[in-house]
Design a protein around this nucleic acid. Structure first.
Length: 554
DNA sequence: CTGTATGTTGAGCAG
DNA sequence: GCTGCTCAACATACA
């Protein structure tokens, strides 16, 4: 009597180099390729329409490949994965299996879910196998090298990773995948097929982006993009242009990596083959291989760090008294800050689910330590909703990076919300595309339209404050106060580090001092643009410069 | 403990 | 368009 196995797709939405799939096929007479639509990821503010569309395209592509090449199909189940798995593994509904195979997922939600499912499988007498494959290396293996604590800088990380040796060679898709029995295929009808966007609670909006989901298009993109070997070999990330669109100046492989449409190992070996043919190729951190290592880096740190996606309880994250201003956050999210470059990037994000890495830097810096001084968690959540390639480990890592909360600490280096983009795109083609209000604004003013004389605004059919917003903050003023606040937060951090005993409770001296100084309300220097609108947030006072001299006595 | 090298991509300026 | 300096000065990693 043969065995039947479930291949549970989550990430790793591919048939090539899929170790879990190969495991499922081993000694099996039937393999059930399954995906579960989890209501946890459905709802307002969770996963945006662009990423859902991409996911559904991935699922459709898998289903099509399974049908045309393997006489099989994708079975899409709906519901809480624990309920679905309980019914499948214990009640043997809608079919019975002996083995459950899936790819390891390092994110906290997945880890607790998978632990529960493993328990359920055990109770149902179902064997479970977990395969690596989303990252280049087994994350536990990397962590062991660092005794559980990975470095917070890239260089030492890469040095260690390279000492492991190359990742396993990527495997081809299986020659055959034993299909589910005909009786089951007859039973699983339309209600087990790939859902529509509507079913996911999304409006059927037009496809605005150029990135289509799926293993087939992902592999095609890898093929197309690597055809220019010289470009691949000499690629340096900081030299690519954030204002390029159609085509973008980078590979745009990230959504395919996020969902595992393309195997990281395949990408790696493809790159190395090209490097072999092109001596003097670029190097990490800026090379393309360097980008794969960055992914590995953030995956490793995210795996090793508790509360990685928030500031509170996060050991590696600087504790900073951000002041969330809901009006500013809304303006930032909607691309209505009055800074055309920032707004263009945010509108590209909302419309297409993608923006260039340096655009992400610019808008992240603007929201947090550069201008608005709002929490990076807000930004990370926004990106997590809107980016097609939103990847938990990488997204939160980059937000900590850009907000100078971890990894990067040079808070005095602030991206200018207009001149930064101007050097890449002096005529503002990118701005004009995504902020059409400014389409007719002369080049001279397209990045700073509030400086245009009234007559010019009228001529351009764009009155500032009416057709396009005034800047919500003055950058010179805002960035200076942000720097002061960052300095204060860093000084506080240093003081705590020097006096670890007082770490648990706030210094009583400081409290007193604060109260006393609370009376200096007539002091003009106390003025802050970061006071919350409702006046209930006491944290707005904490941004005051700490006195380093006082701290040293502690 | 101290010194040194290093840190993916700042802005503004000079040459 | 490129390189390199200064601004003022953050950190980590390691010898």
């Amino acid at each position: 009597m043969g065995k039947s196995a479930v291949l549970w797709f989550r990430k790793g939405l591919r048939l090539h180099d899929n170790l879990a799939l190969l495991e499922a096929c081993k000694d099996a007479t039937h393999v059930y390729p399954v995906f579960i639509i989890d209501p946890h990821f459905v709802g307002p503010g969770k996963v945006g329409v662009n990423r859902y569309r991409f996911l559904l395209e991935c699922l459709t592509d898998l289903d099509t490949s399974l049908k045309t090449k393997y006489n099989s199909r994708l079975i899409v189940l709906r519901g809480n994965p624990l309920d679905v798995m309980r019914s499948l593994l214990k009640d043997k509904q809608p079919f019975a299996v002996d083995k459950l195979c899936y790819e390891f997922d390092s994110e906290p939600y997945a880890r607790s879910r998978d632990a529960e499912v493993t328990k359920i499988a055990k109770e149902g007498g179902v064997e479970v196998t977990v395969s690596p494959g989303h990252t280049l290396f087994d994350l536990d293996e990397i962590l062991k090298k660092f005794k559980g604590t990975p470095p917070l800088s890239y260089g030492p990380f890469v040095k260690m990773v390279e000492s492991i040796g190359p990742p396993q060679t990527d495997k081809d898709a299986p020659a055959a995948i034993p299909a589910p029995p005909a009786a089951v295929l007859g039973k699983v009808d339309e209600s087990y097929s790939v859902p529509t966007l509507q079913e996911m609670g999304c409006e059927e909006t037009p496809h605005n982006g150029v990135l289509r989901g799926g293993e087939t298009v992902g592999l095609q993109r890898l093929h197309d993009v690597t055809r220019n070997e010289k470009w691949i070999a000499t690629f340096e990330k900081p030299k690519t242009k954030p204002t390029d669109f159609n085509p973008a100046s980078t590979t745009q492989m990230s959504p395919y990596m996020k969902f595992g449409c393309v195997s990281a190992r395949k990408f790696y070996h493809h790159l190395l083959a090209i490097y072999k043919r092109h001596k003097g190729h670029s190097q990490p951190p800026v090379s393309l291989l360097g980008q794969l290592y960055w992914r590995e880096f953030f995956y490793t740190v995210g795996y090793a760090t508790n509360n990685y996606d928030r500031m509170a309880g996060n050991k590696i994250c600087r504790q900073i008294a951000w002041v969330n201003n809901e009006e500013w956050i809304e303006a930032w999210q909607q691309g209505k800050t009055g800074y055309p470059w920032i707004d263009a990037a945010m509108r590209q994000l909302r419309r297409e689910g993608w923006m260039h890495h340096l655009a992400r830097h610019a808008v992240a810096c603007f929201l947090t330590r550069g201008d608005l001084f709002c929490s990076w968690e807000v930004g990370a959540k926004t990106f997590d909703e809107l980016l097609i390639d939103a990847d938990w480990s990488i997204n939160n890592g980059n937000w900590m990076w850009l907000s100078c909360s971890c990894f990067f600490y040079q808070f005095f280096r602030i991206y200018h919300p207009s001149t930064f983009a101007k050097k890449y795109d002096p005529t503002g083609a990118y701005v004009r595309r995504y902020v059409p209000e400014l389409r007719h604004m002369p080049d001279k003013y397209v990045y700073e339209p509030w400086k245009a004389p009234k007559a010019v605004q009228e001529e351009a059919k764009c009155i500032i404050g009416q057709d396009y917003p005034e800047p919500i903050v003055d950058h010179a003023e805002a960035s200076q106060e942000c720097k002061d606040r960052m300095k204060a937060a860093y000084d506080e951090h240093k003081a705590i580090k020097r006096a670890p005993k007082s770490e648990m409770k706030p210094d009583p001296d400081d409290e007193e001092e604060d109260d006393e100084e609370g009376e200096e309300e007539d002091d003009d220097e106390d003025y802050s643009i970061y006071k919350p609108l409702d006046g209930t947030n006491k944290r707005s006072r904490k941004g005051k410069k700490a006195s380093p001299k006082k701290k040293t006595k502690a």
